[in-house]
C-alpha cells in the first residue's frame, strides 16, 4: 500500500524538478559524503608506509581505503534511491521536509557554549548553568521549580559521581572551595 504521505517527485514546489531522476537534497548529501571520502582517502595516502615484512601484507591504509571506496560507491546511489522508494510508497523526505526550528540551533549553540566554558567554570558550575539555561531556553518560567531543580539536580549528580565513583571533575573557578 502506498504511504499516505508519500509524494511524487516534483510534488514539492521548488523541491525536486519532475524531469530530473536525481533527488536534489540527496544529491547534496551524496556530494558531502563524497567530499568527506575524497578528503579521507587523500589522508590515507599520507599514512606512513612500513616495510612489507613488518606490514605482513597489510599496509595501514588498505582497510580504510577499501571502506572509503565502498562508502563512496554507495553514496553515488543515494540521489537515485528515491525512485525505488517511491515505487514502494516510502516517503524518504518525511523526516526532513520541515526545517529544524531556530530553537534547535539555539540549543546546539547553548550546548557548545556550556561545554566550552566548563574548563573555566568547572564541571559543577557548568552543570548548574546547563540545568538553568536549557529549561529557560525552552520556555520554562516556573522559577519556584526551576531554581531548586537547577541547584539540586546537578549537586546530587556531581556528588554521586565524585563521592560514589571517585571521579575527579574539573575544579574550575570555585574548585578551591571543595579542596
Amino acid at each position: 500500500m502506498r504511504h499516505p504521505s508519500a509524494r511524487r517527485a516534483g510534488d514539492e514546489p521548488g523541491h525536486r524538478p519532475a524531469s530530473s531522476p536525481l533527488h536534489p537534497v540527496d544529491r547534496v548529501v551524496a556530494l558531502i559524503v563524497l567530499a568527506i571520502c575524497a578528503f579521507l582517502i587523500w589522508r590515507t595516502f599520507l599514512f606512513a608506509q612500513v616495510p612489507a615484512s613488518l606490514a605482513q601484507n597489510v599496509q595501514p591504509g588498505t582497510f580504510p581505503q577499501l571502506l572509503l571506496y565502498l562508502i563512496a560507491a554507495l553514496a553515488l546511489l543515494l540521489p537515485f534511491e528515491h525512485l525505488q522508494k517511491r515505487k514502494q510508497g516510502i516517503d524518504i523526505d518525511s523526516d526532513r521536509r520541515e526545517r529544524p526550528g531556530s530553537i534547535v540551533y539555539i540549543t546546539a549553540v547553548a550546548l557548545l557554549f556550556v561545554v566550552g566554558v566548563m574548563p573555566w567554570l568547572g564541571t559543577y558550575l557548568g552543570l548548574i548553568l546547563a540545568a538553568l539555561a536549557l529549561p529557560l531556553l525552552w520556555g520554562e518560567r516556573r522559577w519556584k521549580i526551576l531554581v531548586p531543580y537547577a541547584l539540586l539536580f546537578p549537586t546530587v549528580l556531581f556528588w554521586l559521581f565524585a563521592s560514589g565513583l571517585q571521579v575527579t571533575f574539573l575544579p574550575g573557578i570555585i574548585g578551591h572551595i571543595f579542596r
Binding site: T123, A130, P135, F158
Partner: peptide
C-alpha cells in the same frame, strides 16, 4: 523542559567520568 536538560547533565558527567578527560 526538565527532563532533557537532566539527560544532558547525565550525558556530560557520564562521558567525562569514563576517562576523566574533557
Amino acid at each position: 523542559t526538565f527532563l532533557w536538560p537532566s539527560v544532558f547533565c547525565f550525558a556530560v558527567v557520564g562521558a567525562f567520568a569514563y576517562q576523566q578527560q574533557m
